[in-house]
C-alpha cells in the first residue's frame, strides 16, 4: 500500500512534466512542418505573382509557342519545357539502371572490404558542386563526344528506322544528349545511395531463405529485395528526377542554349533552369523578368506533376499487390 502511494506521487508529477515537455516537442516539430509548407507556398505564390505579367500578356499560348525574342518582348515556354523534359528523361534512362547496379553490387556482390570505400565515394560525388560538373562537361566530356561519340552515333544509329532522326546531327559535342549525360552522372549518387540504404533494410532471413531454396543472386535481387523495397526505390528515383529537372549550372554549360526544338538529341536546346540562369542578370524589361519568374513557376508545376504521377503509380502498385 505504502509503496503504491510512494509511486503515485512522482508519477503524477512526472505526468505534468511530461505533458509540458511533450507539448513543447510537438509545437517545435509542428512548426518545422509548417515552416516547410509555408516556404513551399511562399515560393510558389511569389513566382506566380512575379510571373503574372507574363501570364496575363501571353495567356495559354505561353505554353505552346516556340518564339523567344528578347528585343521584341515575345516569349513562349515550349522550347525550355521540352528541353527540360528531354534532358531529364535521358538522365533517368541512364542513371536508374546504373544506380540499381551500384546498389546491388554494394549490398549483394561486393566483398565487404570494398563496400565502405565505394559507398563513401558515392556520397562524396553527391557533394560536388554542380558548376564543377558543368566545367567538366564543357572541357572534358564535350570535346570527347564531339571527336569520338557523336560521329559514331551519327554514323551507326542515324540510319535506324524510326529512331534514326533522334541520332542524326552535327558533331558539336554539346546539346541535349551531352546535358542528359552530365545530369545522369550528377543524379547517380543520389539514386544509388537511397537504393543502397533501402536494400540494406531487407531482412537477412528472407534473402537467406531464398538462397537456401537455390535462388541465384539475380533472383534474390529481383524477387525478394526489389519487391520488399519497391516504394522506397521509386522514391529514390524521383528524388533524382526532381534534381535532374531543376539542375541549372551544369546544364547551362553543355546544352548549347539554342531556342529550337529538334528531333535530334545531338542538337543544342535549352532548359527552363538554364534559360533563367542565362537571362536573369540582364533582364531589365519588366515583361522579360516576369517571363523568367513565370518559367520558374512552370518548373515548379512540372516537378509537382511528375511527383504526383510517381505517387499515383506507387498507390496503383500497392493496390495490385493487395497491400
Amino acid at each position: 500500500m505504502s509503496t503504491d502511494a510512494a509511486l503515485a506521487v512522482p508519477v503524477m508529477r512526472n505526468d505534468k512534466h511530461d505533458t509540458l515537455i511533450d507539448l513543447l516537442f510537438r509545437s517545435v516539430v509542428s512548426s518545422a512542418g509548417i515552416f516547410v509548407l509555408l516556404a513551399l507556398v511562399g515560393a510558389a505564390v511569389s513566382m506566380l505573382w512575379g510571373g503574372r505579367l507574363a501570364f496575363e500578356t501571353f495567356g495559354w499560348q505561353f505554353l505552346t509557342t516556340q518564339e523567344w525574342d528578347v528585343p521584341a518582348s515575345k516569349f513562349g515556354a515550349l522550347v525550355p519545357i521540352y528541353g527540360t523534359l528531354v534532358t531529364a528523361g535521358i538522365a533517368m534512362l541512364i542513371a536508374v539502371p546504373v544506380s540499381f547496379g551500384i546498389a546491388v553490387f554494394l549490398t549483394e556482390v561486393a566483398p565487404s572490404w570494398m563496400r565502405g570505400p565505394v559507398s563513401a565515394a558515392i556520397e562524396l560525388l553527391a557533394g560536388i558542386p554542380s558548376i564543377i560538373y558543368g566545367m567538366w562537361g564543357l572541357f572534358v566530356l564535350a570535346p570527347y563526344l564531339s571527336e569520338h561519340a557523336y560521329p559514331w552515333i551519327d554514323e551507326h544509329l542515324g540510319g535506324l528506322p524510326f529512331l534514326g532522326p533522334l541520332f542524326t546531327g552535327p558533331p558539336l559535342g554539346i546539346g541535349m544528349l551531352a546535358a542528359g549525360l552530365v545530369l545522369a552522372i550528377m543524379v547517380i549518387p543520389f539514386i544509388s545511395s537511397v537504393m543502397r540504404e533501402v536494400f540494406l533494410t531487407v531482412p537477412n532471413r528472407l534473402k537467406e531463405s531464398a538462397y537456401a531454396l537455390g535462388s541465384t543472386t539475380w533472383e534474390v535481387v529481383w524477387d525478394i529485395v526489389l519487391p520488399y523495397t519497391r516504394s522506397a526505390v521509386i522514391g529514390g528515383v524521383f528524388l533524382g528526377l526532381g534534381r535532374a529537372l531543376g539542375e541549372t549550372m551544369a546544364v547551362t554549360f553543355v546544352i548549347g542554349n539554342a531556342y529550337n526544338i529538334s528531333a535530334s538529341l545531338l542538337d543544342p536546346g535549352t532548359s527552363i533552369a538554364s534559360t533563367i540562369a542565362n537571362e536573369f542578370g540582364e533582364a531589365v524589361d519588366p515583361l522579360h523578368k516576369s517571363t523568367l519568374l513565370a518559367l520558374g513557376f512552370l518548373l515548379f508545376v512540372l516537378t509537382f506533376i511528375v511527383l504526383s504521377i510517381a505517387k499515383l503509380m506507387l498507390i496503383k502498385l500497392q493496390r495490385k499487390e493487395g497491400r
Partner: peptide, 11 residues
C-alpha cells in the same frame, strides 16, 4: 540579347 537566327549559345 537578341533572337539569333542560327547557332548555339555559350555562357
Amino acid at each position: 540579347a537578341v533572337k539569333w537566327p542560327v547557332g548555339i549559345g555559350g555562357k
